[in-house]
């Protein structure tokens, strides 16, 4: 008999509850709860499309069992901003043309956010190392590097973390 339990998650500041078996990953659970912005690319931590922040650090939600995420603060790309009020990273990604097919972008933005929260003024090598777990097949990363550096400058100008 599969062991199931009710799990309450905090997603983008809101409480979300579902009934999940022990083997359910955070990726699967978030998507079941309607958070389709979290993308499935490989289910084994190779591509980064499913990255979310857990207590402020980017993790692959495909490698996280949902039971272990209970009580932690989960942030997806939707939690960062929206079209009317985008996060500086989202604004920079859109304006620099860093999103092509866009499928890697929710994870890419989360990985970049996790970097900038800890290192507000990253050098190019820091950005490269921080994004090496996020595969992109469309952009060659050139405009993604530009977007992260533009957003970092904008955030420093704002003088605070968002």
């Amino acid at each position: 008999m599969v062991q199931e339990k009710q799990v309450t998650l905090s997603v983008n500041g809101r409480s979300r509850t579902g009934r999940f078996p022990a083997h359910r990953t955070l990726l699967e659970a978030l998507r079941e709860l309607g958070h389709t912005e979290v993308k499935c690319g490989c289910e084994k931590g190779d591509c980064g499309a499913c990255a979310v922040l857990v207590d402020g650090k980017a993790v692959d939600s495909c490698l996280t069992l949902v039971w272990t995420a209970e009580g932690r603060a989960i942030t997806t790309v939707v939690g960062l901003g929206n079209a009317q009020s985008p996060h500086p990273l989202q604004k920079a990604f859109a304006e620099s043309g860093a999103a092509q097919c866009g499928y890697c972008i929710p994870g890419m933005v989360i990985a970049a956010k996790s970097l900038l929260d800890r290192n507000p003024d990253p050098g190019e090598e820091d950005v490269r190392i921080a994004l090496s777990g996020n595969l992109c097949r469309c952009t060659g990363y050139t405009k993604i590097f530009e977007a992260v550096s533009t957003a970092a400058a904008a955030l420093r100008e704002e003088g605070g973390v968002r």
Binding site: G45, G48, V59, L63, T64, A111, S114, S132
Partner: peptide, 12 residues
């Protein structure tokens, strides 16, 4: 550690 996997895996 710098050459270890990607950021999300290093975080976990």
């Amino acid at each position: 550690a710098r050459a270890f996997a990607g950021q999300m895996v290093r975080n976990t």
